[in-house]
């Protein structure tokens, strides 16, 4: 066989291998998407049927909401501070005085940074914990044990976590907005010699209730993403302790990517509806 013919066979083999690998990756992605959708639908079904365990749900709300509050407070306060510092510095360079520091800080926080940063922090803290916990339960047969004891794992484990994320993330977002604006106030007053009254005027003058709803509505969608991805990754974990690590990392990465991508489309949609 000539070297040219060998080359052609080799290229054909490579193309076949590449096509099969890509095909498998697409199938695996669609399979994952399908099973995540099925789990989400089952969760909605249980919620609509009222199959909610109040004790577990409250415990999860405390875990998602109360336990995340300190880190949300810290990150949003410093985000507000750095925003005020950057805006003041930029406007001082452009206009020789810091102007609209409160307006830009407030708007940035309420419509964008508050919801997105809160969702990202909750993904890292709560989403990772949910996947790791459910994943460990899966690999140690605790999910099977639930089934043999007459309990549906989605009803018992996913429903409380889903509700906790859905109600606590918007609440944390609202608090993050307020705390961030206060962080901006501290820097504006101390670094840019703007009075608190002037700062609050700048924050509130252009802000309407729709502005607040813009970020608030987005946080509900981010909560859905965190809850569905983290629970689904946990329920499908395999491969022992190593698998738990891998699925937890993949859960956090996927949630963050989906939050950032969906943020663009949600913003476009809300702006089109004049919720801004």
């Amino acid at each position: 066989m000539s070297s040219n013919a060998k080359k052609i066979i080799k290229t054909k083999k490579f193309i076949k291998y590449f096509a099969v690998a890509q095909g498998n990756a697409v199938l695996s992605f669609l399979d994952g998407l399908g099973s995540a959708a099925a789990m989400a639908l089952e969760t909605f079904k249980w919620i609509l049927q009222g199959a909610v365990n109040p004790k577990n749900t409250v415990a999860q709300m405390v875990e998602v909401g109360w336990a995340s509050f300190p880190i949300i407070m810290l990150t949003s306060f410093f985000t507000g501070m750095v925003l005020a510092l950057q805006v003041g510095s930029a406007t001082s360079n452009l206009f020789n005085e810091p102007v609209y520091v409160g307006t830009i800080t407030g708007f940035s926080l309420v419509i964008e940074l508050g919801p997105v940063l809160t969702a990202v922090v909750v993904t890292g803290r709560v989403g990772a914990a949910i996947t790791a916990e459910l994943g460990t339960m899966k690999v140690t047969e605790q999910l099977d044990a639930l089934y043999t004891l007459g309990t549906n794992p989605v009803k018992y484990l996913a429903v409380p976590r889903f509700l906790a994320c859905f109600f606590m993330l918007p609440l944390l977002t609202a608090l993050a907005n307020i705390i961030g604006v206060y962080g901006g106030l501290v820097v504006t007053v101390t670094s840019w010699d703007v009075t608190p009254a002037m700062y609050w005027n700048e924050v509130l003058d252009f802000m309407v209730i729709r502005t607040f709803f813009h970020g608030f509505i987005k946080s509900f969608f981010f909560a859905l993403i965190i809850a569905i991805v983290s629970c689904h990754k946990g329920f499908t974990t395999e491969g022992g302790a190593e698998g738990v690590g891998k699925y937890t990392t993949s859960s956090v990465m996927l949630s963050m990517v989906l939050i950032l991508i969906s943020d663009y489309f949600l913003t476009s949609f809300l702006v089109a509806l004049n919720i801004k």
């Binding site: 605790q142 044990a145 007459g150």
Partner: peptide, 18 residues
């Protein structure tokens, strides 16, 4: 569900809820 009520399962690693 009726059948589940009739079955007890002892898992290899106990599978107790942590």
């Amino acid at each position: 569900r009726e059948i589940q009520r009739k079955i007890g399962y002892v898992f290899q690693e106990a599978a107790l809820f942590d």
